[in-house]
Design a protein around this nucleic acid. Structure first.
Length: 276
DNA sequence: CCCCAGGTCGTCA
DNA sequence: TGACGACATGGG
C-alpha cells in the first residue's frame, strides 16, 4: 500500500465514518480502525478517526486519488454560507445540525459508477443496493489484487452491455436491468459523455441525465452532486421531503452549496433524530 | 407472511 | 400538472 497525505483547509475536520456512511457511496465498509473500499482500480483504506489539517490514506496502486476527497473545498466556509438558509427554519436546531454533520465531505466519485449505483438505489434498501453493486462488480468488473485479497473495479459501460439482459438478470437487479442497459448504451455510444456533460449548465445537464430510462429527479440530482461535483444540487428523497416539511414547511432554497447542506440535513435527520 | 425500501414509469383525470 | 398503482427482489 502507498500512503498519501492531503492537506485540507485548516478550519475543516474530516470524519471518515460520517463521510462514508451518509448514503453517498455504497462500496466502503468499516474494517477495524479503518474504512476501506474500491475506487477505480485501487483499494483505498482510510483511518476511521476524525482528523484535522491532513487526510492520510492508503492506496493499493501508485495512482493519485486525492481529488476523491474533495480537498480543495472548505466545508466550514460552505457551512457559513448555507447556515443562513438553515436559520430560516423556526424549529431546526441549527447548531446541533452543524455539529452532527461536521466532518462530512462530498466525495468526488466516478460518473458512470454513480449513475448506475443510484439507478440501482431506486425503491431499494441499502443492504441490497450494496449487494447488487458488489455482485455486478464481481461478475463484470476487472479483477485486481491488493493486500493479499482480490477486489473488483466497477464494470465499464461496455462490460455491462456485453453482460446484457441475461447476465444482469442473474444479478437479481429486477426491473432495474433495462434501466442500467439504457444508461450503459448511452454512455458507450458517447451520447452521454462526462467531459461534455461537465460543460453544461445544471438545468441542461439535468435534462440530459433524465433522458436515461429510470433516471428521474432524484437519481439525476445524486449523479450531479456525487458524480459531477455540482455542490448546488439538492437530491430530494423521502427523507429530505420529511426535512423540508418538518423544518421549513415547504421546499427551501439552500443556496449555492445546497447539496452540502442537504447532506448535513439528511445525516441529521436520518442518523441522529431518526435514532432517538 | 407482510411491509417496505434515498424512485420512476405509464396511465388516466 | 397531479394522483396512483405497478414494478423485481429480498431485508427485517
Amino acid at each position: 500500500m502507498y500512503t498519501r497525505k492531503i492537506t485540507i483547509p485548516e478550519r475543516d475536520t474530516f470524519s471518515p465514518l460520517k463521510t462514508f456512511d451518509c448514503g453517498q457511496c455504497f462500496r466502503f465498509e468499516e474494517k477495524g480502525d479503518f474504512v476501506e473500499g474500491v475506487v477505480g482500480h485501487s483499494l483505498i483504506r482510510v483511518p476511521a478517526a476524525e482528523v484535522r489539517g491532513e487526510i492520510e490514506y492508503h492506496i493499493s496502486c501508485d495512482t493519485d486519488r486525492d481529488l476523491f476527497f474533495d480537498p480543495d473545498h472548505s466545508y466550514e466556509e460552505m457551512c457559513d454560507d448555507f447556515v443562513r438558509a438553515l436559520r430560516l427554519s423556526p424549529v431546526l436546531d441549527v447548531e446541533d445540525c452543524l455539529k452532527n454533520g461536521r466532518g462530512i465531505r462530498i466525495l468526488k466519485q466516478d460518473f458512470f459508477e454513480t449513475l448506475i449505483s443510484f439507478i440501482i438505489s431506486q425503491n431499494n434498501n441499502i443492504p441490497r443496493i450494496k449487494k447488487n453493486i458488489r455482485t455486478i462488480s464481481e461478475r463484470f468488473g476487472e479483477r485486481f489484487e491488493a493486500e493479499g485479497g482480490e477486489y473488483f473495479a466497477f464494470p465499464t459501460a461496455e462490460a455491462l452491455l456485453f453482460a446484457g439482459e441475461t447476465g444482469l438478470d442473474e444479478c437479481r437487479l429486477g426491473f432495474r436491468t433495462k434501466y442500467i442497459l439504457d444508461a450503459a448504451e448511452k454512455v458507450a455510444s458517447g451520447e452521454l459523455c462526462e467531459k461534455e456533460l461537465s460543460l453544461l449548465p445544471t438545468p441542461l445537464l439535468d435534462e440530459k441525465l433524465q433522458s436515461v430510462k429510470g433516471v428521474g429527479n432524484k437519481v439525476s440530482a445524486c449523479v450531479m452532486l456525487f458524480g459531477l461535483g455540482r455542490l448546488d444540487t439538492v437530491p430530494v428523497d423521502v427523507w429530505m421531503k420529511k426535512v423540508f416539511d418538518k423544518y421549513f414547511g415547504a421546499p427551501a432554497d439552500l443556496g449555492v452549496y445546497g447539496g452540502v447542506a442537504q447532506q448535513y440535513l439528511f445525516y441529521h435527520e436520518r442518523f441522529v433524530v431518526g435514532k432517538e
